[in-house]
Design a protein around this nucleic acid. Structure first.
Lengths: 167, 167
DNA sequence: GGAGATGTTCAACCAAGTTGACTAACTGGA
DNA sequence: TCCAGTTAGTCAACTTGGTTGAACATCTCC
């Protein structure tokens, strides 16, 4: 139990990357702990991404893979698991026989609602500590930062980039 | 290439957790890309944590494990790899024969310097986009948030929590 | 001195990703 | 019209970075 814990990279404090890692883990762990309490016991960490992506309209394996920054094979496996749990269903695209759209089931929609509710709770707790204005400011700045850079093609203009760069 | 990318959980925008995930990945990928350009080709993602932790004084497997939120076995394996690459060395504690302190080598110190320099560059680029004040504010708020909560024991009082909760 | 706690490692296993090869369906030009 | 090339998705084998469980040496304290 020596030092090093508070030590930072730059004079200004610990590197942002480390703070992001801790903050992310804290939120994700909080989310899943709460989900378990509510009876959602089979939810894997990556499910949230798929739920969000399929929220407004069915999505595809390829899009999910790009969004999460993993291979299509990995995305396919994940969707298989989620389908097995009853959160999504695979359909058939009438206009393109290759595609097998991924759509939320009722159960998936219920889970998504729970996730959104819990995120709101967790962020509310942040607001209690650092203030609602700071939380909003942080989201605004992150959003601005993350949707700004990146090349001028499809990606970038107001859209969030994927979790991993397209490589 | 449909929607869903901009879709958020709450009315206020995408959940903070997702923004943190993207921001973290972007910084870490930027770091390692730059490191590779500079000739550091064998650097694994988790090395940075060890470097930071061993920065001021030698650390231990147990502390590293706690800090990174992984098992001691995993921490041990990681340190083995880093020692194999010549970034750290294992010693012997004169006062406790069980401990085998993990210390930075000269090469490890060089790598740490490169990492800190690159982080500064990357954060500088953030400052160009959202402003230096915003970057500082973000670090301050995150720091305040992350070192505030958590039980009143050793952890919490001004110290950053580990990446994963102590479980 | 002996019981229990602590620091570390060994071995076997597992989860979640990867790469590579493949099928099926769509698209566009000669 | 047909065929080359691209795109969506899957199957199988493998890699990786972790896990659990057991062992061992050392320290602490009554």
């Amino acid at each position: 139990m020596t030092g090093g814990v508070t030590g930072g990279a730059t004079a200004g404090g610990p590197p942002l990357a480390r703070l992001f890692a801790i903050a992310y883990r804290q939120l994700i762990d909080g989310l899943h702990e709460r989900l378990r309490e509510l009876g959602w016991t089979d939810v894997r960490e990556a499910f949230g991404f798929v739920l969000l992506a399929a929220r407004d309209q069915p999505t595809s394996i390829t899009e999910l893979a790009a969004l999460m920054g993993v291979t299509k094979q990995a995305a396919s496996k994940l969707v298989d698991v989620m389908a097995g749990c009853g959160y999504v269903s695979r359909g058939a695209d009438p206009h393109d026989g290759r595609q097998r759209p991924v759509a939320l089931t009722g159960r998936g929609r219920d889970l998504l609602a729970a996730v959104e509710q819990i995120y709101a709770e967790l962020e509310g707790r942040w607001a209690e500590v650092i203030g609602a204005g700071q939380v909003d400011g942080m989201r605004r700045d992150l959003l601005r930062m993350l949707s700004s850079d990146r090349l001028g093609d499809g990606i970038g203009a107001g859209r969030l980039p994927p979790v991993r760069p397209p490589s």
